[in-house]
């Protein structure tokens, strides 16, 4: 689907990416996944896969995600088959490719992936009710937070320009997360490598989407980074 067709498809769909205009201007081709438009590629999927190994910026804002917060969060999720990591600032790969992030002892964030299913997230949304969950409250993140994936070996060097955390692989291991400020904007940065390619998920206030897109494009330009479609984010088992 071309950028224009994607725009039409998206216009018939109530959900738009926070980066829709920027992606359309770059000629993104969209697919609809879980009722949201996802930029699959920019017309050069193979080159984008190679780009993602170096430095790529991929919009995942349309993908389903949800948070839960409260002292009973870990127990309530465990009762529904979601085992959070024992330590805060860690994440785990669970069923359907989901990433289960433990932000603090009493806060969790679940992220779906382009190649996986969001069934579990929808099941949790349906299962929650105030009578049975106790001190565990949903924190909807799909509209409040924009979501970009930073891909490739040059990401830690690029992020060093705009964030005080050391994201080099030997300092910031796979399946680790930090809640910090990126370009003076509060953000969650969660590392979950995909088939050997470094992948740092960046979630931040959706009201700052246009600002952050501009900052990241500017910061990446020094290292030949550019936007890539989510097809460049190779699903597990499809390493080329």
């Amino acid at each position: 689907m071309s950028g224009a067709e994607g725009a039409r498809a998206a216009s018939g769909n109530p959900r738009r990416s926070f980066f829709q205009r920027q992606l359309e201007a770059l000629g993104a081709r969209f697919s609809i996944l879980d009722d949201g438009p996802l930029a699959t590629d920019f017309g050069a999927a193979a080159a984008e896969r190679e780009q993602a190994r170096q430095l790529g910026l991929c919009d995942l804002s349309s993908l389903p995600r949800i948070g839960f917060k409260g002292a009973n969060t870990a127990a309530w999720l465990a009762g529904r088959g979601v085992a959070l990591p024992a330590e805060s600032h860690r994440l785990a790969r669970i069923e359907d490719g989901l990433l289960a992030c433990r932000l603090s002892p009493g806060e969790a964030l679940l992220l779906s992936q382009p190649w996986g299913s969001s069934r579990l997230i929808k099941d949790l949304e349906r299962a929650w009710n105030i009578e049975s969950a106790g001190l565990c409250f949903p924190v909807p993140r799909r509209d409040s937070h924009a979501w970009l994936a930073l891909l490739g070996a040059r990401v830690p060097t690029m992020l060093a320009k705009i964030c005080g955390i050391d994201f080099r692989p030997h300092k910031f291991a796979d399946l680790t997360l930090a809640q910090t400020q990126v370009a003076r904007t509060s953000a969650i940065v969660a590392r979950a490598d995909v088939e050997g390619t470094g992948c740092w998920h960046l979630l931040f206030d959706s009201a700052s989407a246009a600002y952050m897109w501009h900052v990241l494009i500017d910061a990446m330009s020094e290292f030949d980074g550019r936007p890539v479609g989510c097809a460049a984010l190779a699903p597990p088992g499809s390493a080329q």
Partner: peptide, 10 residues
């Protein structure tokens, strides 16, 4: 206590 050493601007 939760996040470890961070820039005071946070």
């Amino acid at each position: 206590p939760l996040n470890g050493p961070r820039n005071i601007q946070e």
